Amino acid sequence: MRNFDGHATLLFGILIGLALGLIVGMWSPPSTFEVPEACQGQEFWCWLNDWQTLVSAIVAVAATLMAATIAWFAVQAQIAVTHLPADQTKLVLDNFLEEFLQEVNQAWRFLEVALDHNYSEERKFTALNIACAEVDSSFQSSNILDCSEMLTDLLPAQKHAYEQVFISLRRIKTELERKRSDDDPEKGYGLSAQLFAIQLSHLVKYLEQANHTLAEVFSEREKYDVDHTLSWHSSKKRADIQLEKWADELSKQQA
């Protein structure tokens, strides 16, 4: 609908421009107010001869604008064709991710119990291990990380956003595998409940940048306020503090 509106606006503007050009041309004073004797009975052809330069210019402008319009439509059609595979890939990718994230969301409910100080240590330990086992199992059954191969078909901005999502997923999977006790299953996972919640909170942040609809899967979960500020902001803050400190020292020495 937006493309249709844009096309209609462009054509309407072209037509208005041509109409105004014709009106201005018709209202311009002729070179003479008297009809020459040679033009008696052939006023129209004489008028056309007087205005042939203007008419030729208007026709030329109209032809140029029409050619530009056709070219613009062709470019828009090419852009639409280019975007189509990326949009289809993104749709499929979002479907796979949503199914996986729904399972993670259920595991996060147990993680919230593990973070609740009102429960006993034994109950929190059990809840944490259920949460870790559920997410670990989802990684193994869904093979969600294999979907990262689809990123090559996305547009550059989409690709960058989804790459961050898969990087976050790989970190979570690696941490679960590292903390899983294969030697003694009763020991469960040696992963901190708080660290696990922070990793999941980072995942939600990346999902918000890629597709806020996917992030809404975790709308009811208690998330940590993680910071995704660009690294140069931290460098600037450190520099501001240090330079302000030196400026104060210099002021005191000069006082």
Rank of each mutant, 00 (worst) to 15 (best):
T152E: 14
L91T: 11
I130P: 04
E149Q: 15
W232H: 15
H117E: 13
L65E: 07
V75S: 05
A80Y: 06
Q254E: 12
Q42P: 07
E220M: 11
F4I: 10
S120Q: 06
Q242I: 08
W246D: 10
G6P: 04
V81L: 14
H7G: 14
L65V: 09
Q194C: 13
H202G: 02
W51L: 06
V113K: 00
L91C: 12
Q78M: 14
Q164Y: 08
A19N: 10
E222R: 11
S219E: 11
E175K: 02
R178S: 10
A77R: 10
V81G: 09
E37D: 12
E186G: 12
T53W: 03
V226K: 07
D227N: 05
D50I: 00
D50E: 08
A114R: 00
A68W: 09
G41Y: 06
L10V: 11
E37V: 01
L145F: 03
Y162S: 03
H202L: 07
S138A: 13
L20Y: 05
V135F: 01
L101A: 04
E134L: 14
L207E: 06
A8F: 03
A68Q: 10
A67D: 01
C46M: 04
W246V: 11
A193W: 04
E244M: 08
H117G: 09
W246E: 11
V104W: 00
L176C: 03
I172N: 02
T152V: 12
T53I: 09
W72P: 02
K90P: 00
E103T: 09
L151F: 04
Q158K: 08
E163M: 08
G190N: 05
D182L: 14
Q242M: 14
A133T: 09
P156F: 04
A71N: 08
E177K: 09
L15M: 13
V81M: 12
S235D: 13
C132L: 03
P85K: 08
I14W: 04
C46Y: 02
Y224N: 06
Q102Y: 10
